[in-house]
Each structure stands twice: as structure tokens, then as C-alpha cells.
């Protein structure tokens, strides 16, 4: 399909009518643009339902999940271990393979995604469903999530 190969010197001036239109800038700090329903943000883990099987730490492509001992969850049923996943957000690539492979479905991903810090150590924390869910605001300061 051949197109005519000439243009006009004055056609760009018609683009100046954008001056009248309202800019479609999302003024982020003032306007909160909520992420979509399925957004893959930080993890949350229901420590009761989780059986500490370690599937998530094996499937993680970036070796980001380490199983951390939780002595208070030493249930007696077969197959459950007193271990809970600890996620290092200096490695995680937010691919949600761990959520897919979790047998009990306790490990989920929530819509919070902001964590800015000048200390590297604050990027490693244990997802706990009781902490993350209470804050509806999407821009959550997760500094307080660190294990005290």
C-alpha cells in the first residue's frame, strides 16, 4: 500500500489546540490511583492455614523465600512443619509462582506495593495476614512490617 510522501508545513500548528484541553496527568501524590484487582504486590500469609511445606521456597526462581522456624506453630498433624516463609524483597520478582503452587492457598498477594527505605535490611520481612490486611490504603509504608 503506497502512501503519499508529502506533508504540509502548517498541519503541525493544528496540534496547538491541545493547549485548550485538560491535561490527562495523574497527579500522583495528591490523587491515589488504585491498582487493579489482580495486582501482584507484597505477600500476605495466613500463619494458621500455612503448613510450612516449603513448596514456595522451592518454586521461587530467585531463591527469595527462606523458611524461618516458628516454634509456636508445631502442630501435630502429619506434614505440617513449624516453619513459615520469610520473603526477601531484594530478590523477589513478583511472579506469584509461590501463590500458585501453595497447597493450602495461605500465601496470597495484596495490592500494597510501596516500600522505600535507605536501609537494605528493611526489605526482608515475614508476611503475616494480620498485619497487611488491616490497612486499606494502597500506599502503605511497610517499614513497620519488619519483625520487631
Amino acid at each position: 500500500m503506497t502512501i503519499k510522501r508529502e506533508g504540509s508545513l502548517f498541519s503541525p500548528f493544528r496540534a496547538l489546540k491541545q493547549l485548550g484541553k485538560k491535561p490527562h496527568t495523574v497527579q500522583i501524590p495528591k490523587v491515589v490511583k488504585p491498582p487493579a484487582e489482580r495486582y501482584r504486590g507484597f505477600h500476605t500469609n495466613d500463619l494458621e492455614k500455612c503448613i510450612g511445606c516449603g513448596n514456595c521456597s522451592r518454586i521461587c526462581p530467585d531463591n527469595a523465600i527462606k523458611m524461618v522456624p516458628f516454634p509456636e506453630y508445631a502442630k501435630k498433624e502429619p506434614g505440617s512443619m513449624p516453619l513459615r516463609p520469610q520473603i526477601d524483597y531484594g530478590r523477589c520478582c513478583f511472579c506469584a509462582l509461590c501463590v500458585e503452587v501453595c497447597p493450602t492457598g495461605s500465601l496470597q498477594m495484596v495490592k500494597t506495593f510501596t516500600h522505600v527505605d535507605d536501609k537494605k535490611e528493611s526489605f526482608v520481612f515475614i508476611p503475616d495476614s494480620k498485619v497487611v490486611h488491616e490497612t486499606p490504603d494502597f500506599v502503605l509504608d511497610t517499614k513497620d512490617l519488619r519483625r520487631k
Binding site: R5, E6, G7, S8, L9, S11, P12, R14, A15, Q18
Partner: peptide, 18 residues
């Protein structure tokens, strides 16, 4: 269509790319 007006028919763009 807006891009056509501003960019694809722009005389200077034509001179710079043809």
C-alpha cells in the same frame, strides 16, 4: 489522527527522514 497532524505530515520530519 492527532499524531498524523503533528508528526507524520510534519514537513521538517519529512525532510529529516526521507
Amino acid at each position: 489522527k492527532e499524531y498524523d497532524k503533528l508528526y507524520f505530515n510534519n514537513m521538517v520530519f519529512l525532510k529529516r527522514s526521507q
